[in-house]
């Protein structure tokens, strides 16, 4: 028998309105657009929690503020907050985020 869910009834937060970047009309072809927090969160916001049908963003496991990015040094650090203390799924969530980022970022990045 599967043990009962650790947090059976999590608080579901509303999804933040996805900001649409105002696309500047005549962009210079050769301008470099650096990778920023928003782009990161776009990558990982839709990961589903291992035990609920909600995305990590809805559960506020990850927030935009908890991501530190340094594009020049190819460094990113994601701090996430599990829904309950001693969440056994924390490692799994961490792993999910990690894999997703490894797959979505250029190889020069070291994911932390």
């Amino acid at each position: 028998m599967v043990s009962s869910l650790i947090n059976a009834n999590p608080v579901v937060y509303e999804k933040k309105e996805r900001r649409v970047r105002g696309a500047p009309s005549d962009v210079d072809e050769y301008v470099v657009e650096p990778i920023d927090q928003q782009e990161f969160i776009n990558h990982i916001r839709d990961i589903k929690d291992p035990e609920h049908p909600y995305s990590l963003e809805e559960l506020k496991v990850i927030t935009e503020d908890a991501i530190e990015v340094d594009d020049r040094h190819s460094y990113v650090r994601v701090t996430f907050t599990p829904t309950v203390e001693h969440c056994s799924m924390a490692t799994i969530i961490g792993l999910c985020i990690r894999v997703k980022l490894i797959r979505s970022l250029p190889s020069r990045y070291k994911v932390q």
Binding site: E85, A90, L95
Partner: peptide
Amino acid sequence: AFPRPAEKIVTTG
């Protein structure tokens, strides 16, 4: 900064 009563877990490389 993290008022929610849960542990912060960081994955590090």
